[in-house]
């Protein structure tokens, strides 16, 4: 039961990341901070599923497909990276200047997310 729930969560998290990375509509990621966080979340949930949920036969190939989908999301993120701020202003007023400390916090958040992703890879993979 719980493994089915975890699989559904994984599908949702990976799907959300791909959507935010490629969408140009309301679902589109508005800044680098959230884009990297979504990418790391997708990678973490994939690693956790790999470690905790039995994936016999075709399910293990579905997992491979989910990794490929995450890579597609990363490609989308790379494509949009240059046009995104580290941290966007409030929704509805995206061009409003963001205080310097919030930008620095966003950069630190991105670095922390990446470090977490690397650490999780070492432990879980």
């Amino acid at each position: 039961m719980w493994s089915s729930v975890l699989l559904l969560v994984a599908v949702a998290v990976v799907g959300w990341f791909v959507l935010t990375a490629w969408s140009t509509g309301r679902a589109a990621a508005r800044d680098r901070d959230r884009l990297v966080a979504a990418a790391v979340e997708a990678w973490l949930v994939l690693l956790w599923v790999r470690a905790a949920v039995p994936l016999p036969g075709v399910l293990s190939w579905c997992w491979v497909g989910a990794v490929a989908a995450t890579a597609v999301g990363v490609a989308g993120a790379a494509r949009r990276w240059g046009g995104l701020p580290w941290r966007a202003g409030p929704r509805g007023r995206p061009d409003q200047p963001v205080p310097g400390w919030r930008r620095r916090l966003a950069v630190a958040g991105v670095a922390l997310s990446l470090a977490l992703g690397v650490a999780a890879t070492v432990v879980l993979a």
Partner: peptide, 15 residues
């Protein structure tokens, strides 16, 4: 991205 993703996925495939 698809090729790299598949390569990483196959390398780490849980089996």
């Amino acid at each position: 991205a698809v090729v790299l993703g598949l390569a990483v996925g196959v390398l780490l495939r849980p089996a």
